[in-house]
Amino acid sequence: MTFKLIINGKTLKGETTTEAVDAATAEKVLKQYANDNGIDGEWTYDDATKTFTVTE
Rank of each mutant, 00 (worst) to 15 (best):
G41D: 02
Q32W: 06
A24L: 11
D46F: 04
L5H: 00
E19W: 15
G38Q: 07
G38S: 07
Y33M: 05
T49H: 06
A34K: 02
G14P: 07
A24H: 10
V21D: 10
A23P: 08
T53F: 07
A48S: 10
F52C: 01
K4F: 13
T51R: 03
K10I: 15
Q32A: 14
K10F: 14
I7R: 02
Q32R: 13
I6F: 07
N8S: 07
T11V: 12
K10L: 15
T25C: 07
K28C: 07
L12Y: 14
M1C: 10
I6L: 07
N8I: 14
K50D: 03
T51M: 04
K13I: 11
T49Q: 07
K10S: 10
G9H: 09
N35T: 14
G9R: 05
K10A: 12
A48G: 10
L5Y: 02
K31S: 04
E42K: 10
G38H: 10
K13L: 07
N37T: 07
N35M: 15
T51E: 04
A23S: 10
A23H: 09
T51C: 06
Y45H: 01
L12A: 08
K28V: 11
A23N: 05
A20H: 04
T49R: 07
K13V: 10
E19I: 15
T2L: 13
T2Y: 09
E19S: 12
D46L: 04
E27H: 10
E19F: 15
I6R: 06
K50I: 03
E27A: 11
N35H: 15
G38D: 08
A24S: 11
E42H: 12
W43Y: 03
I7A: 03
A20P: 02
T11H: 13
L30V: 04
N37Y: 13
T16R: 11
M1L: 13
E56I: 13
K31M: 09
A23L: 09
D46H: 06
D22C: 05
A23Q: 12
I39L: 06
K28P: 04
E56K: 05
G41K: 01
K50S: 06
T44V: 09
W43L: 03
T18D: 02
D47Y: 09
D46R: 03
T49W: 04
I7T: 04
Y45L: 02
Y33W: 15
G41Q: 01
N37E: 08
V29Y: 13
E15L: 08
W43K: 00
E15H: 10
D46C: 08
A48R: 11
G9W: 09
Y45N: 00
D46M: 04
V29C: 07
Q32L: 09
A26M: 02
E56C: 08
A20M: 03
I6C: 06
E56R: 05
E42I: 15
T55L: 06
V21G: 09
T2G: 05
K28M: 13
K4R: 14
M1E: 10
E27C: 13
T2R: 13
N37S: 08
F52W: 08
F52A: 00
T11W: 13
T11R: 08
A24T: 10
I6M: 07
A34Q: 02
N8Y: 13
W43G: 00
G9C: 11
V54E: 00
A26G: 03
A23T: 08
I39Y: 05
K10C: 13
L12T: 10
T11C: 14
K50T: 04
D46V: 05
I6Q: 05
V54R: 00
F3N: 00
N8E: 08
T44D: 08
L5I: 04
V21Y: 12
E19C: 12
D46N: 11
A26T: 01
M1I: 14
E42N: 09
K50W: 07
E15S: 11
G9M: 15
I6W: 04
V54N: 01
T16L: 14
T25L: 09
L30H: 03
A20V: 04
K13Q: 12
Q32G: 07
T16P: 03
F3P: 00
K28E: 08
V21W: 12
T53G: 03
K28Q: 13
T2F: 11
D46Q: 05
T25V: 09
V54M: 05
E56Q: 09
T17I: 08
L5N: 01
M1Y: 15
F52N: 00
N8L: 13
T16D: 03
N35P: 01
G41L: 03
A48T: 12
A34T: 05
Y45R: 02
I39C: 04
I6V: 13
A23Y: 13
L12S: 09
T51F: 03
A34N: 03
K28F: 10
V29H: 08
G41I: 02
L12Q: 10
L5M: 05
A48L: 11
V21C: 11
D22W: 03
V21I: 13
